[in-house]
């Protein structure tokens, strides 16, 4: 049975939230990604402007548990759009939810920095097409700001 969400208001309702962003593959793919499906929404594709969000459903929340890292996030479902801004470069991309993730609780407290600008906890994963708009894929992990466009 899915555990209930925290009673605290989601931080993203109050304004932009900062966290870490990485990238993941989905849909038709090669290598270790070849066994990956089309994600929780059934539409995920590495070449599309999409992302994974930790709170797309009760079942998703039960896996990702950002609240265990002290972060409440709003329930947002397939197709909802976010703007993700890389704090390193200031560039941004607008993408839509296509999957559940990342598994925030497994990386609680992790912090990424660009100089003195830092952000903690994995709150969002982008497809390669989306991530490569705001950072090199070889960077792997970056601090970002997440907002509603």
């Amino acid at each position: 049975m899915a555990r209930s969400q925290s009673a605290d208001p989601p931080v993203d309702l109050l304004g932009p939230v900062t966290g870490e962003v990485s990238w993941f593959c989905c849909g038709s793919a090669w290598g270790p990604c070849s066994s990956t499906g089309r994600g929780a929404c059934g539409t995920c594709n590495s070449g599309s402007m999409q992302h994974a969000w930790p709170n797309t459903s009760d079942a998703c929340w039960a896996i990702t548990r950002p609240d265990s890292c002290g972060v409440g996030l709003s329930r947002r479902t397939c197709g909802f759009t976010h703007r993700i801004t890389a704090l390193c470069s200031g560039t941004s991309v607008v993408t839509s939810i296509a999957d559940c993730g990342p598994q925030t609780d497994l990386f609680c407290g992790e912090r990424s920095c660009c100089g003195a600008t830092c952000a903690s906890n994995r709150l969002i994963d982008l497809t390669p097409a989306a991530y490569s708009k705001i950072a090199s894929l070889s960077s792997g992990l970056r601090p970002c700001e997440i907002s509603v466009p």
Binding site: M49, T81, V94, A129, K133
Partner: peptide
């Protein structure tokens, strides 16, 4: 601009 959710024509993957 590429619409959210849409394929990006300026991106490619494959072998």
């Amino acid at each position: 601009g590429v619409a959210p959710g849409a394929p990006d024509p300026d991106f490619a993957e494959g072998r």
